[in-house]
Amino acid sequence: MTGARERLAAQQSALLHALLAGGPAPAGFDEAALRVEADALLAKRRRVVATITPETAQACGAEFAALFAEYARANPRRAGSRAREDAAAFTAFIAARERRWWRRR
């Protein structure tokens, strides 16, 4: 069972890293299906964050989806993390981005 768990862990880890963290597509998967799945997982995560912190989503306006995609790629959700922590981290990501923008002016 140890060997089975290790091999399954490697397969599942490679799939999640491809879908969530920009990792290479694992062999044998349909690349179009991987893109559809990655987009669906991103959209679900975005909806959850928008529900928890609607004020941040509203402040992003039309850029919300693009900004969230940028945040999510750089910060895939860690196992054991909570949706509230994800929403707070996205709000901090947006705040840090705005500070950089003001400094550059």
């Binding site: 399954l8 862990a9 890293h17 895939p76 959700r77």
Partner: peptide, 19 residues
């Protein structure tokens, strides 16, 4: 969950004997 990441949604398992 796998590889330290959380998918945030239900992912299919491979339909192998080992899995």
């Amino acid at each position: 969950r796998a590889g330290g990441l959380d998918s945030g949604h239900l992912m299919p398992v491979p339909r192998t004997r080992e899995a």
